[in-house]
Design a protein around this nucleic acid. Structure first.
Length: 515
RNA sequence: UCCUCCUUAGCUCAGUUGGUUAGAGCACAUGACUGUUAAUCAUGGGGUCCUAGGUUCAAGCCCUAGAGGGGGAGCCA
């Protein structure tokens, strides 16, 4: 229909002078639009545009000039790779070239030609350069050189313009997308659990309070306490520390669900693997037992890592090289045995090591580290919580691969975990990864109302406030399981970065909420 | 929160047992160069040595306190 209209419009000369003029104008506009249509650099690198006109827009990374020619490396974020613009000072105004400094944003139109230089296949011969936004080179803090991650953290609003952070955030996106794809393909439903909750009984640490009160002058009850009944929600509320409990409710009807949302912990943790605001993925599955849960977690991790390896090849190769350079500055005994790419490949191709807490204690007890007292905390008795030095020994020294630890003593785990028949342990699982420690924590849930209620009472969890949670055990209860995966820890592992603050665009940690 | 290390030019870092005018590379400016690859070469500008106090004839360097940052521990994802 449209095709035939266009055909008639352009193919048959019309008598009217007006239509002739209109036709020419439209043809001109179409050519202009085609010529000016922005092409992403990723597309220029993937398809053959040789001898075609193109327009690119992006930020200047470096400019190299001599009397006869300027080379401008442009990056538009679509790829880690820059595209080289060649500017002839006879064609491009000197003032424009002068303003095309590192950090400036440019629109460049011209012809894509085969490069005469060695560093790239094609380049753009500029016929027109437009400065979209200048960047005063005296003040612009990013230079075409290596900056420290600590310095870049202070300019988090600009660091997305660097190779490293561009790569990190493209990989982060791929991983996030893969999470949804994996669960969707498996028939899971994405549930949005609340960010504001009234329950602080989830047993996951300090919370951020949510209130509309004037903090200097909150309404008080007769006995002088803060009167939360007068607050917006008519009760004490805080930011969520986990979507798990609500996730369980949803799984008791939709069977297989997952959550992927922001999570908050107000703990004063100053480490390379904790954030006050982070993103957590929490699948919850009805009819799954502990082993089904482990199988799913392992398969899921392998899938999303493979997805990133396949879809972010350039970025991960860059990060691999970066990590190698970083490693070479470390002392020999602190270097990891595998490079980033190798490590990712290894995780995808090998089975995770599964063992119980009890077996792990045996391994640690008999280890040379324990005998030679190399551990700061020596392993003596069954029942102690494992320190991170022990976890690291198991993963990095003993098994040298991801480890799934199961069946922990009930005393050191949460109230909702299913009690094993031995009366001592619960059906918990932690997945430990080299370098980052615990990446997944999960369990089969206690589905038996009597046992759950008893355990809650033992651990001083208010059963009355949690009536809605216990209702799932009262009505149509069934074995079910789930786990939580810290998204940033995963990104940390896949990108090979060392600090969790460098894998989220605008990190929130104690004392830091800028940007 | 605890332990530990660090803070010198816009950035990355030297700076000797305390000694007189604090250096380098990159960045920036100017110039040179017929195609560069974080281009190269030459010249130049650029400093509250984190802050406050103290010791000393003399402090970037030593002492005390504070601030900021890194790493480790705990908590955990």
């Amino acid at each position: 229909m449209i095709k035939s209209l266009l055909y008639r419009f352009f193919a048959f000369p019309l008598r009217s002078q007006f239509y002739e003029t209109l036709k020419l104008t439209i043809i001109y506009i179409l050519i202009y639009m085609a010529f000016n249509k922005r092409v992403k650099i990723k597309a220029l690198l993937e398809k053959d545009y040789t001898d075609q006109d193109a327009t690119i827009m992006g930020w200047v990374r470096t400019k190299r000039s001599n009397k006869n020619v300027s080379f401008i490396a442009i990056n538009d974020g679509s790829s880690i790779k820059n595209f080289q613009v060649v500017a002839d000072p006879n064609l491009i105004n000197e003032e424009i070239l002068k303003k095309a400094t590192t950090g400036a944003c440019l629109k460049v139109s011209g012809k894509i030609v085969t490069s005469q230089g060695a560093g790239q296949q094609n380049e753009l011969n500029a016929s027109k350069i437009e400065i979209l936004g200048e960047a005063d080179p005296e003040k612009y803090p990013l230079q075409p050189k290596k900056h420290s991650l600590e310095f870049l953290r202070e300019i988090a609003h600009l660091r997305v313009r660097t190779n490293t952070f561009g790569a990190v955030f493209r990989v982060r996106h791929a991983l996030a997308f893969a999470v949804h794809k994996y669960f969707n393909d498996k028939g899971f439903f994405y549930i949005h659990t609340p960010i504001i909750t009234a329950s602080d009984a989830e047993g996951a640490g300090e919370t951020f309070k949510v209130t509309t009160f004037d903090l200097k002058n909150p309404p008080l009850t007769a006995d002088g306490k803060i009167d939360y009944k007068a607050d917006f929600f008519e009760r004490e509320t805080n930011l969520t520390v986990s979507g798990q409990l609500e996730g369980e409710l949803a799984a008791m009807g939709l069977a297989d669900i997952y959550t992927f949302g922001p999570t908050f912990r107000a703990e004063n943790s100053n480490t390379t693997r904790h954030l006050a605001e982070f993103w957590m993925i929490e699948p919850e599955m009805a009819f799954y037992d502990a082993e089904d849960n482990q199988d799913l977690a392992e398969d899921f991790l392998k899938y999303i890592i493979s997805y990133a390896l396949e879809n972010c090849k350039d970025d991960i190769e860059f990060l691999d090289k970066r990590a190698q350079e970083e490693e070479s500055t470390k002392k020999a005994n602190q270097r990891s045995e595998m490079g980033l790419l190798e490590r990712l490949q290894f995780v995808v191709e090998n089975e995770f090591q599964r063992l119980t807490y009890t077996e792990a204690i045996d391994v640690l007890k008999n280890s040379n580290y324990n005998k030679k007292k190399k551990f700061q905390y020596l392993i003596e008795d069954w029942g102690v919580d494992l320190q991170s030095e022990h976890e690291r020994y198991l993963v990095e020294k003993h098994f040298k691969k991801p480890v799934i630890l199961t069946d922990y003593p009930k005393e050191i785990k949460a109230f909702y975990m299913r009690q094993n028949d031995d009366g001592k342990t619960v059906a918990a699982m932690d997945i430990l990864f080299p370098g980052i420690g615990e990446i997944v924590g999960g369990s089969q849930r206690e589905e038996r109302l009597d046992l759950l209620t008893k355990r809650m009472e033992e651990m001083n969890i208010p059963t009355e406030e949690m009536w809605w949670y216990l209702d799932t055990r009262r009505f149509g209860s069934t074995p079910h399981a789930g786990f939580g995966l810290g998204f940033e820890r995963l990104v940390l592992f896949v990108t090979g970065m060392g600090n969790i603050r460098d894998v989220i665009a605008f990190p929130r940690t104690p004392g830091h909420a800028e940007f």
